[in-house]
Simulated assay, not measured.
Amino acid sequence: MSKTQQELDLEYENGAFIPNAQSYVDAWEAASAALRAAKTGEYDVAYGDNPRAKYDLIRPDGPAKGLFIFVHGGYWLQRHKDDWTCFGEGALTAGWAIAHPGYPLAPEVRISEITKHVAQAITALAEQTDGPIVLAGHSAGGHLVARMAMPGVLSAYVAARLSHVLSISPVSDLRPMLPLTMNDTLRLDAAEAQAESPVLGHSLDVPVTVAVGSQERPVFLDQARWLAEAWGVGHMILPGRHHFDVIDVLRDAKSPILRAALS
C-alpha cells in the first residue's frame, strides 16, 4: 500500500517527535551568542558575493593544532551559522581553531550550489590557517561534509589537509527527498539527487566517521547506515540520543567521538 503525502513527509520530520524541541534550538542560540561574546574572532568574513556567504573563525589562545569546521543543517532550507557556534566549543577547548561557514539556502539556490558554496568557504578558511582540517556537519550539514570528502569537490591541496570527516545524522541519499513536500522548495530533480548523494559515490582516502543517535527517526538511522556501508567507514550509534541532542558531543572536548576526530 502506498504511503500518503503526510506519511512521507513525517518520515523526515524531526522536531514533532522530540519533546520540547524548541528548547534545544533556544539553548543552541543562547550558548552560541555567549561564546561569540566571550571570544575575539574574525566574524562575518565574506568568502563570496551572496549575503550569506560568510564565515566566522575563532582561534585558540595559543598556537592552533589545526582547523575544525562545523557545517550546520536545517534541510538546506533554514538556520544560520550564528545559531551553531557552540558546537565548536569542544574543539576550541582542545586547542583547535574553529570555523562556522554560512551558505545561501533554497529556494534561492539549489543543493548543488550549496555544495559549491561550502567548498568555497572551506577553501577560503584553509588559506587563513595552517595544519590539519577536520570537518563536522549535522543533518544537511552531515550531507555537505560528506560531499566535501568526495573526489573533485575540494582542490587537491585542501583535500590533502583533511584529517577527519565527521558526518552526524546525515542525509546521504537524496533520492527519497524527491516526493517530499519540502522538495517544492528544494527543487531537486532525479539527476541532481543522484549527483549530490554521497551514498552513490565514494570517498577520498581520508578517515570518515558516520554518527547517529539511537532515538532518531528510522530514516535517519537508515541514511547513516547506508553511508557507512557504502563507504566502508566507522558507524557510531550514540545511545539515547535524538536528532537535536546527538551533536552535544561536539561541545565536550573529552567526548570519545570528538577526541577521535581530532586525534
Score class of each variant (00 low, 15 high):
residue 2 S to N: 11
residue 4 T to P: 01
residue 9 D to S: 01
residue 9 D to M: 08
residue 14 N to K: 10
residue 14 N to E: 12
residue 17 F to K: 12
residue 19 P to R: 03
residue 21 A to W: 09
residue 23 S to Q: 10
residue 26 D to P: 03
residue 27 A to W: 09
residue 31 A to C: 12
residue 31 A to K: 10
residue 34 A to K: 09
residue 55 Y to H: 01
residue 55 Y to G: 04
residue 57 L to A: 05
residue 59 R to E: 03
residue 60 P to V: 03
residue 61 D to V: 14
residue 78 Q to L: 07
residue 79 R to P: 05
residue 84 W to P: 03
residue 84 W to D: 03
residue 86 C to G: 12
residue 91 A to F: 09
residue 91 A to V: 07
residue 98 I to T: 12
residue 102 G to L: 03
residue 104 P to R: 11
residue 107 P to M: 09
residue 109 V to R: 06
residue 115 T to G: 08
residue 116 K to W: 05
residue 119 A to F: 14
residue 123 T to S: 14
residue 127 E to P: 00
residue 129 T to V: 13
residue 129 T to F: 11
residue 130 D to S: 15
residue 134 V to H: 12
residue 137 G to I: 12
residue 143 H to Y: 06
residue 145 V to R: 01
residue 149 A to L: 00
residue 151 P to Q: 00
residue 156 A to Y: 09
residue 157 Y to V: 15
residue 166 L to R: 11
residue 168 I to A: 05
residue 168 I to W: 07
residue 169 S to Y: 05
residue 173 D to S: 03
residue 174 L to C: 04
residue 177 M to V: 14
residue 177 M to I: 15
residue 181 T to H: 10
residue 182 M to Y: 08
residue 185 T to H: 05
residue 186 L to T: 00
residue 193 A to C: 02
residue 194 Q to D: 14
residue 197 S to E: 05
residue 203 S to T: 06
residue 205 D to L: 12
residue 205 D to Q: 13
residue 207 P to H: 02
residue 210 V to S: 02
residue 211 A to Q: 00
residue 212 V to E: 01
residue 213 G to K: 07
residue 214 S to F: 05
residue 216 E to N: 10
residue 224 A to S: 15
residue 227 L to K: 02
residue 227 L to Q: 08
residue 228 A to V: 04
residue 228 A to D: 06
residue 232 G to R: 12
residue 233 V to T: 10
residue 234 G to T: 15
residue 236 M to T: 14
residue 237 I to Q: 05
residue 238 L to P: 12
residue 241 R to A: 13
residue 250 L to H: 02
residue 251 R to I: 04
residue 254 K to I: 02
residue 257 I to S: 05
residue 257 I to V: 15
residue 259 R to L: 03
residue 260 A to R: 13
residue 261 A to Y: 00
residue 262 L to E: 04
